[in-house]
Amino acid sequence: MSCNLEQISLTHSNGFTALAGVSLSLHAGERIAVIGPSGAGKTTLLRLLGAAVRPSTGGIELLGKNPWSLPVTELRRLRSRIGVVHQAPPLPQRQRVVTAVLAGRLGQWPLWKSIASLLYPLDLAGAQAALERLELGDRLFDRCDRISGGQLQRVGIARVLYQQPDLVLADEPVSALDPTLAQQAIRVLLADAEARGATLVASLHAVDLALAEFPRVLGLKDGRIVFDLPAQAVTDQLLHDLYAAESAELPTLSKEPRFSAHSVEAEAVLRGARCR
């Protein structure tokens, strides 16, 4: 159930080389953080691991299979075992949170069940349980355009929790969350992967979060792997070299860029209201 990348390169149609000669081996149940400056190829690497893009050259094996030599139904089955948390959750605005979460298992459900679930949500308890792990249990029946950016990002995480994939890929999964919530959400993902023996690969902008929570850390720059080490072996020097071009300071949780400016305050207000 391992994943292997062998000298993978990916050149986009516009001539930009996103990844060059990347080799990587993931064992089942491993939890890995990918860090690196913007444009390093983190998202591309995750898309490769999700069988969403085809490498230009090199060999790839996901969960023990080469996705690009499988017949259509087999590829679909493989993809249903891979779950992706997107940085900007691709959820339809007018869909309700419960439907968005249940959509995580569309790959496992037969078509009749997908249609029936649109008429009446078939696994309310399952969706509720996934949301409750992210403290969103009370948002089950809200519409996706009526919740804050941070909540939406956690709905995206809940969808993958509900999907229960063997390989979890998280692309900046907590970029819209405040430090406390971000740490909490990452721990939920880690605990879930550990409990089920699933592999977790998360790209993170916050270096401190990656080093504190993940056993293995991958440094990516200009489409190449700069280091691939246990967290405790990552030195300050390595990190400063990795982010050399960006700024003198390392990106950490408190300096995390937000993709939605209002979400931080909205989160704070909501959380404050709940604690009172």
Binding site: R77, R79, A103
Partner: peptide, 21 residues
């Protein structure tokens, strides 16, 4: 696309991903 990448059938991906939009 996200649903297709998660192994959903095209029909289901349409119902859950495109139709609500």
């Amino acid at each position: 696309d996200a649903l297709l990448d998660a192994g959903a059938r095209p029909g289901a991906a349409f119902l859950y991903g495109t139709l609500p939009e």
